[in-house]
Amino acid sequence: MIGVTIEHTLAELDDADTALAYDALRALRPHLTSVEEFVEVVRLQRKEGYRIVASFVDGAVVAAAGFRHMTNLYAGPHLYIDDLSTLPAARQQGHAGALLKWVDEEARRLGCPSVHLDSGTPRHDAHRLYLSSGYVIPAFHFSKRL
């Protein structure tokens, strides 16, 4: 594979195409047990500005990023990546990196000076990607189940 360049075909998915991202995002969110449930959750999230961009191979989605435009006190306006996942068979082919670059460009287009995301602590391969893509770890994220 040395010397081979893989072209990434990226496109934003609209409501009608949401189901195409199910398998890729289910690789990250296995609690989603049906395409119908996934489409319904995304439909609700779209009301809050959630969007999905996908990477395609031979017409099929192999990786996807779900993100939203946000503004808060600590970061100001930014894009927040909720979900970034690649099907296991398509990993290490640059799909997630291409999606991160796409989100960076969209943030610039929208006038956002930064992109943020959270990542589970055991996801070391993802962390290497984020760090090599210019992300830093400025804080810990805490949560509490009720």
Rank of each mutant, 00 (worst) to 15 (best):
V103R: 03
G111T: 06
T9Q: 12
V42L: 04
H127C: 05
H69G: 05
G49E: 11
G94E: 06
E48R: 13
T33H: 12
L87M: 15
R68T: 07
A24V: 04
R91F: 10
H31Q: 13
G134D: 09
A90E: 09
H78L: 02
V42C: 04
G3A: 00
V115M: 10
P30Y: 10
A107V: 10
V61G: 00
H69L: 14
G97T: 05
D58T: 04
Y22Q: 00
Q45F: 04
L87F: 13
A98L: 09
P77N: 07
S132T: 06
E12S: 09
D15W: 00
Y50E: 03
S85G: 14
A11D: 11
I52Y: 02
S34L: 04
L10P: 08
D23K: 12
E48L: 12
Y74G: 04
H116K: 10
V4G: 01
H124E: 13
A19R: 11
D125N: 12
Y135M: 07
E105T: 08
L44F: 10
T86L: 04
V57Y: 10
E37Q: 15
M1V: 11
G120N: 13
Y74D: 11
G120I: 02
P122R: 08
D17P: 02
R46F: 05
V136W: 08
L99I: 08
L79V: 12
A65V: 05
A126D: 13
L13A: 10
L28G: 02
I52W: 00
L20K: 15
P122I: 05
G76S: 07
A96D: 04
L13M: 10
V35S: 07
S34P: 03
A54E: 02
Y22F: 15
A139T: 14
D118Y: 07
P113V: 09
I6V: 15
S34Q: 05
L32W: 15
Y22T: 04
G120Q: 10
D82S: 13
K101R: 15
G97C: 07
G66Q: 02
L13F: 10
Y135G: 07
T33N: 13
R109E: 06
I2V: 14
V4P: 01
A27K: 02
G120H: 12
F56D: 01
L146K: 04
A75S: 14
T33A: 08
S114R: 13
P122V: 06
V4Y: 04
I52P: 01
D23M: 03
L99A: 10
T121M: 11
H95L: 03
I137S: 09
H127G: 06
D104E: 15
G76F: 06
S132L: 01
A21Y: 01
V53T: 10
A126N: 15
G76A: 06
H141E: 04
I6E: 15
V57W: 06
A64R: 01
E48G: 11
